[in-house]
């Protein structure tokens, strides 16, 4: 399923469109500790997290995840948003918890 379609199905807000809205999501990874995410998130995953600082963009770039989904209504901080914009990282935001979002995504993929 494409990033933009997941956003619509989850009623998630697209906080930064980035370059990946038409990219196919193939899996999902949930995590907030960046070293774990670096090591375990896979290319084309949707990465669910409550981390919202600029380092999220670096990790998303290096792991090649399809997009970042901030859960529980977390807003990216200004540096994160600015860097995501520069690097073309797609960031979505939902009021759902990581679990609720993952259950829905699991049914959609």
């Amino acid at each position: 399923m494409l990033v933009k379609d997941i956003a619509e199905k989850l009623q998630a807000e697209i906080v930064n469109p980035g370059h990946h809205l038409n990219r196919e999501i193939k899996g999902c990874y949930i995590g907030d500790l960046l070293s774990w995410v670096m090591s375990n998130a896979q290319e084309d995953d949707i990465w669910i997290t409550i981390m919202s600082n600029v380092n999220v963009v670096a990790v998303a770039t290096l792991t090649d995840v399809a997009c970042v989904l901030l859960c529980e209504n977390v807003d990216p901080d200004d540096n994160c948003l600015k860097r995501a914009n520069e690097q073309g990282i797609s960031i979505l935001k939902t009021k759902l918890t990581a679990y609720e979002a993952a259950v829905k995504i699991g049914n959609l993929l």
């Binding site: 960046l34 070293s35 090591s39 981390m51």
Partner: peptide
Amino acid sequence: ELGFGAGMGLPNIKKY
């Protein structure tokens, strides 16, 4: 607080 300091840095470097 930034999401680092999990004690996985050097182990990850070795692993990869």
